[in-house]
Design a protein around this nucleic acid. Structure first.
Lengths: 144, 144
DNA sequence: TATAAATAGGATAAATATATCCGAAATAAA
DNA sequence: TTTATTTCGGATATATTTATCCTATTTATA
């Protein structure tokens, strides 16, 4: 469904969010440890999220990654996914046809639409705040 | 969502189904041309589908790939997907956690369930017959 | 039985995704 | 202004997926 990079990106963003509540910036090292991911690779993904303005970074001593805690409820999963995996999961044909629309649909076009809409709803309605609060309250977990 | 291999596998199966209606076996060459896929790679995928008994092959002169046309309505998309991509799309955690269940859910576990269930429904309720008839009647297409 | 036509399957190549490494640039604080 | 700390970004390595190639095996028919 999502690429590894995207999985790491989502989990990293949640961990950053949790810490931003407390005004703490976090490093790739801390993040990778907390979400059980390869550190250098995770750092690359964080860079991409910064470039897409999903999260913020501060260079130098006492720097790290953070998000504006007032924006947490407005940062949706869809933004993270689009920043890393692009919007192929939104617009791409389920069977990989170059051209696939109502007028020239692939064999699963109609049936696939429901699945995609469900996914879209989920990604667009879920905020970093929702996810971070669940972790803080012990309802869900960032690693096994 | 699906791997390239799986996309090819689904489209190839549909084309084989269409021809089996008319008692015709088809070759990887014909299939690849019709679904716009790399021939040798497609042949490999067909082998996998045969091993998983989703389709049938006949070696030698006048051979080719076919499906029992009486079984067409009982062959579901889910069988093709599982044969090629495995059942990770069914059981795997949306964020790649080794262990992710009701008792120890990843951050998107609950929200993801709806999406997966929708996908599952779609794959288990769609038969090769459904898809083949749509192609025959010009409702949908195997290539752009 | 010989031949031609097909699938099966191993070996290899190319492309992409995942992962690592290291020096450059930025920045806070001593 | 120097130093320690930290992100940035290019180069490279590894793993996986996608794709190709070639030979072996099977089988219908002449």
């Amino acid at each position: 469904m999502f690429s590894k990079a995207c999985e790491y990106g989502i989990k990293a963003s949640i961990f950053i969010a949790i810490n931003s509540y407390e005004g703490k910036r976090v490093s790739p090292k801390e993040i990778a440890k907390e979400i059980n991911s390869p550190q250098a690779f995770t750092a690359k993904i964080l860079q991409a999220l910064v470039r897409h303005k999903v999260i913020n970074s501060v260079k130098g001593a006492y720097g790290g990654f953070e998000v504006n805690k007032n924006e947490l409820k407005y940062i949706k999963l869809s933004q993270i996914v689009k920043a890393i995996d692009g919007d192929n999961i939104y617009n791409g044909c389920g069977l990989g046809l170059e051209k696939c629309d109502e007028n020239h649909p692939c064999p699963v076009h109609e049936k696939f639409k429901n699945v995609r809409d469900e996914l879209k709803q989920m990604l667009e309605n879920t905020s970093l705040e929702d996810l971070a609060l669940d972790i803080k309250s012990g309802v869900s977990f960032l690693k096994a």
